[in-house]
């Protein structure tokens, strides 16, 4: 049962969170920046995550056009009973009204679980250079994006790369290319002098695969791209690539995997820089 708090304060939210129903184990704080157009998708993924990552999830809903400044909240403790013990997941939904949108760090820092990693899932294209992103990057350990949700590719990758020295980054679009990267790796050494990569799939995945091959092979190669909802075909110099270990991964599976990774991914960073 969710508890709703109108025009509330961080202290009041903290107090409610302390009334946790039972002792529990947490492994992370998972924050998500969720503009209105992404709410449904975010809730679906959250539901799909279920009890896999026992964490405090803080969903931040920006509402800059609100007539008043302030904070509304709802707090939910979701318990997943198991055979031997139950997992407890806390879900805090925060609506940042008016000018509060510009001060999200001041709201979330007191609510983060101390000493545990903080993941920031940014729905849609992050507003590079803007206060809300800068602040939240400053209080998180890992930024998780899905560049397939972005407009303005490939230029947006340049802006993302500017963040690499400040925060570890994950990209769900990159994660979706894994079976194809493994397939391309299987073609080594035949692909050593590859000149053209053909990809039928989302633009983000096509660009990332190209950037990856460029950076790994240390040579330029041309991309021929045909748009599709998911990667359907990859070929290098005309030779089709067979995806390896291809298991259909749901958005929740992909996010769950990212929530278990901590350090920087230099291969991804190099791929982004080579796009």
């Amino acid at each position: 049962m969710a508890q709703t708090l109108k025009a509330t304060s961080v202290a009041e939210i903290e107090a409610l969170l302390d009334e946790t129903p039972s002792q529990r184990t947490s492994v992370a704080t998972h924050m998500a920046w969720v503009p209105p157009e992404w709410v449904d998708a975010a809730e679906r993924v959250l539901h799909g995550l279920g009890p896999r990552i026992p964490s405090r999830t803080i969903l931040l809903h920006p509402d800059p056009k609100a007539k008043r400044d302030g904070l509304d909240a709802s707090i939910e403790h979701e318990r997943f009973p198991g055979e031997d013990t139950s997992v407890c997941v806390e879900i805090v939904r925060l609506w940042l009204r008016g000018a509060t949108v510009k001060a999200p760090a001041s709201v979330v820092v007191p609510l983060q679980i101390p000493d545990l990693p903080v993941f920031l899932r940014w729905r849609g294209r992050p507003p590079f250079g803007r206060t809300e992103l800068e602040q939240l990057v400053g209080v998180s350990d890992r930024l998780i994006v899905d560049s397939a949700e972005w407009r303005g590719l490939p230029r947006a990758y340049e802006r993302l790369a500017e963040l690499f020295d400040r925060i570890a980054a994950s990209d769900l679009a990159w994660a979706r290319t894994l079976p194809w990267r493994a397939g391309l790796a299987d073609l080594w050494p035949g692909v050593r002098k590859a000149r053209t990569l053909e990809v039928t799939g989302p633009r983000a995945e096509a660009l990332l695969l190209t950037g990856w091959l460029r950076s790994r092979l240390r040579r330029d190669l041309r991309l021929r791209h045909e748009e599709a909802g998911r990667i359907e075909r990859v070929a290098v110099d005309g030779e089709r690539v067979r995806p390896q270990h291809a298991r259909p991964a749901s958005p929740a599976d992909l996010l769950s995997d990212q929530l278990e990774q901590y350090g920087r991914d230099p291969v991804y960073e190099a791929a982004v820089r080579a796009v």
């Binding site: 990267r181 493994a182 790796a185 050494p189």
Partner: peptide, 13 residues
């Protein structure tokens, strides 16, 4: 030997 393998997080099969 194969730079494309670096960083590939694959299920062990």
């Amino acid at each position: 030997a194969n730079p494309l393998r670096e960083g590939l997080r694959l299920l062990r099969t």
